[in-house]
Each structure stands twice: as C-alpha cells, then as structure tokens.
C-alpha cells in the first residue's frame, strides 16, 4: 500500500490550517481510510486540543525523529473509533529541532501503511514551513477571503512552485455568504481568479467550529454544522469523487434582498 502525504499550509497565521487538518483527517477516516495527522507546529502545538487528545500525549514528533521512541508509541488513536492517528508536536522544543529530510523519511515510512498523511504546517515561511512542505507530495492552501491572507497564500504558492510542489489546491475558509452578497467580502470567483489555483472547497464561517474546538470534537462530527459538511465534501474531492462546488456570488437574488429588507434571518451559509 502506498499512501500520500499532503501538507496543509497558508502563510498567514490563524486562517484555519489546524481546524482543516483535524476535520479533513477525520472526514477521510470516516471514508474508511487509514489516516495519520502530524502536528509540525513545534512549540505551539494545537492539533491535539482540537482533536481532544491532549491528555493522552506521552511521546511527540521530536521524540520519534530523535529515535527516543518508536513511531507507533507517539501515535495517538482518535476517540471516535476511526483509523485516525495523531502525532503531536513537541511543546518545549523549537522548529529547528527537526530537519526537512527527517520528516520526509518519517512520512515515507508511514506511506507504506497508511492512505493519507496530513501535515499541519505552522504559520510563516521559515524552518517549520520548510520541514512541513518538503515532506509532502501535495499541498492544500488555506486562506480566508481577506487581502492579507490572500497575499500570503500567493507567496506560499510561489514558494511551493519553486520547490517543486506543483498544483496546490485551495480551501477558502470563513466565507460569510451574507457579507459576500452585500459586497463586503470577496467571493469564491474573486479569490479563485486572483490565486489561479484549483479550488477544493469553500468552508463557511460557522460558529459551531468554535464550540467544537471548545469541546475537542472536530466539527465534522456535528451533523448540523455547515463547516463540518464542507470538510466532508473536501475529503470526498480529495478522494477523487466529483462533488460540485456551490457558488457564493455577490449578485443578490430578489429573495435575499427582500429577506434582508424585512429582516428575516435565514441560514447564513450555503453548503459548498
């Protein structure tokens, strides 16, 4: 069996990489794949708390790389009975305690046994970014529809391209359909044409993501969450399934205008 390693990266911090990693990882595992998610944000580990596994950590990524434990010992199994494992980042070390080639070696070994290895990349374009991206065969760029996030995403696309990681795919996170319709947020088409890479998903801004993070249960497990549904669709697309992307366009339909006019609060998101 040969799996593939996909890095989730963004350039700018706080746009939703860790949330995306946890949820896409869980959604792929729900599709009966064997999945490993690796937190490479050394010193600022987060993926464990998003997945609710922070109390089970014994060994971490740096321990594995330094040969202090076997890979299996550092892999924490997900709580929901899925074939999903987390390798947590070290909290008390810094980013240059591992080398790109070491992480690549680890992923190459995992690819023999698992279908997907997802790497949660730290923000920025320094050592941590190089570690994470060198280890991967594919990349997913997460951005929000904001000027600063898109600019950083573009830089990252250029850097990936230069290092031979071609055709990264794009997730646009925290889209607010009402703001897009009002003309106060760039829509899917705008972001897509600016960055000119393939779109693999649109994730609506959804406060359920925040409560899910509080609980330590990824939002894909919340059947009523629009963001959760979006991650499930992203996982399906990664898996090669054709799932249409629902557009969020700025041109308001008559219904929305009337609805806004009389102040009816409909569902704020559209599923994409």
């Amino acid at each position: 069996m040969t799996g593939k390693t996909i890095v989730i990266t963004s350039g700018k911090g706080g746009v939703g990489k860790t949330t995306a990693t946890a949820n896409i990882g869980a959604a792929l595992a729900m599709r009966r794949h064997r999945v490993v998610v690796i937190d490479t944000d050394i010193g600022l580990r987060n993926l464990d708390v998003i997945m609710g596994l922070e109390n089970r950590i014994v060994y971490d990524l740096v321990n594995v790389i330094e040969g202090k434990c076997r890979v299996r010992q550092a892999m924490i199994k997900d709580k929901h009975g899925l074939e999903l494992y987390l390798i947590p980042a070290a909290q008390t070390r810094d980013k240059d305690s591992i080398e790109p080639s070491q992480l690549r070696e680890l992923c190459a070994a995992l690819e023999q046994e698992y279908d997907y290895i997802l790497i949660d990349c730290p923000a920025g374009i320094e050592q941590g970014f190089r570690n994470a991206t060198t280890a991967a065969q594919e990349a997913v760029i997460v951005t929000t529809p904001e000027v600063a996030a898109i600019r950083d995403a573009d830089r990252v696309i250029g850097l990936l391209e230069a290092s031979g990681l071609h055709r990264p795919r794009l997730v646009i996170n925290r889209i607010d359909a009402d703001l897009v319709r009002r003309g106060d947020m760039m829509g899917q088409k705008d972001v897509e044409s600016l960055l000119a890479i393939e779109l693999i998903g649109l994730v609506p801004a959804d406060e359920r993501t925040v409560s899910a993070a509080n609980r330590g249960v990824p939002v894909v497990h919340d059947a009523r969450s629009a963001a959760g549904a979006a991650y499930i669709r992203i996982a399906a697309r990664m898996d090669g399934e054709e799932v249409p992307l629902n557009e969020i366009t700025p041109r308001p339909g008559m219904f929305h205008k009337l609805r806004d006019l009389v102040g009816i609060k409909g569902r704020a998101y559209s599923h994409a």
Partner: peptide, 13 residues
C-alpha cells in the same frame, strides 16, 4: 463595494 476595493488592491499587490 469594499470587496471590489479589496480585489483591486490585491491585484496590484
């Protein structure tokens, strides 16, 4: 609209 302004600024940047 502010999204149009954002788009134009980004194009240049």
């Amino acid at each position: 609209s502010s999204s149009e302004i954002a788009r134009q600024r980004l194009r240049l940047v």
